[in-house]
Amino acid sequence: MNVARRLLLATLIAVLTGLAPSAQAAQPQPVEPRIVSIGGAVTEILFALGMGERVVAVDQTSRYPAAARALPDVGYARALSPEGVLSVAPTLILAMEGAGPPSTMEVLKQASVPVVIIPDGHDREAVLRKIAAVANAVGAQEKGRALAAEVSEDFAALDAMVKALPERPRAVFVLSASGGAAVVGGSDTSADAILKLAGLTNAMAQIKGFKPALDEAAMSAEPEAVVVMRGGGQVLDAATVFALPAFAGTPAARDKRLVSLPGSYLLGFGPRTPRAARDLAAALHPGAKLPELPPRPWSAEPDQ
């Protein structure tokens, strides 16, 4: 081998040897997902699965835990803009069924970011489906099964408590009140579902959906209690609610029986739903002395 060829070979070896580490370093590295979470239950599930650090933005219904409220807000779940959602550079969008408007969801689905729709629902099976869907979307199936098992245990304990209750008080859920009219939760609503889970009778079950209550219909329903949300911006206290003509002459007004719970806790239908139903049942069955559900790390933080 002549000198020229030896020099060429040595140079080639040196070049290849020098490139080897760089070539290995240039291999694509796994990128942690940047998740936009749309829907309070979706967000709660993500944090309960230990995925909270990967959530980069949430919608306005995502109120729990406190770490979620500290994240950028992309708007109300049903009135999103594609620009707002995409502005945080997500690599994955998880949205509760019903998020919108449809035009926004269509734009998001056509973008280069995966969009996973999480099925909604307002019963035990629906909550477990949400957990499974979120866990599958983020590759946390084992943690999802563990979370679902804990939530199933909570639902079973709640069911046993409710079956032992001696009565089913008549209650009405008031969503809002303006201009002297109350919007109440009828059948086929999340409000109706949580009342039933808590062992209560929905006094406004004769109407369907969230609708204004006619004064005569509300008084004839004779609710023994009124249930409202807190934290939604509108203050619905006993003085405000029982001054409404629809409730002024009811047993609930006479006894001043009003229960207020955080909105996302009461109607979110996420992992903490059995706890919300238990708290509602305890408030309206004061003599029952219902036991607390087992402590869970994902529900330990006080709600706002």
Rank of each mutant, 00 (worst) to 15 (best):
V3P: 02
V3D: 14
A4S: 13
R5I: 12
R6T: 11
R6H: 09
L7D: 06
L9P: 00
L9R: 13
L9Y: 13
A10K: 12
T11W: 14
A14N: 01
L16D: 11
T17L: 15
S22R: 15
S22D: 12
Q24R: 14
Q29N: 00
Q29T: 13
R34E: 00
S37P: 06
I38M: 09
A41F: 01
A41G: 13
E44T: 08
L46E: 07
F47Y: 14
G50P: 03
G50N: 05
M51Y: 02
V58H: 02
Q60L: 14
A67C: 00
P72L: 08
G75N: 03
Y76Q: 07
R78P: 09
G84V: 07
L86P: 01
P90T: 04
T91K: 08
L92T: 03
M96D: 15
M96G: 15
G98T: 10
A99R: 04
K109H: 10
A111G: 13
V116G: 10
I117G: 08
A126F: 04
R129V: 11
K130H: 03
A132Q: 13
A137N: 04
A137R: 04
Q141W: 04
E142N: 13
L147C: 01
A148C: 05
A149R: 14
V151M: 10
E153G: 14
A156K: 12
L158I: 07
A164D: 11
V172I: 10
G179F: 06
G179C: 01
A181T: 13
A193V: 02
A198V: 00
G199C: 09
N202A: 01
N202T: 06
N202F: 00
N202S: 09
A203K: 05
A205Q: 13
I207G: 05
F210A: 09
P212N: 09
A213T: 04
A217G: 12
A218N: 05
M219K: 15
M219C: 09
M219P: 03
A221G: 07
E224W: 00
E224A: 11
V228W: 11
G231C: 10
V235P: 09
A243F: 06
L244P: 04
T250P: 03
D255K: 15
V259R: 05
V259Y: 00
P262A: 07
L267A: 03
F269Y: 10
F269K: 02
F269N: 06
R272M: 13
R278E: 09
A281H: 07
E292V: 06
L293D: 02
R296F: 00
P297S: 13
P302M: 08
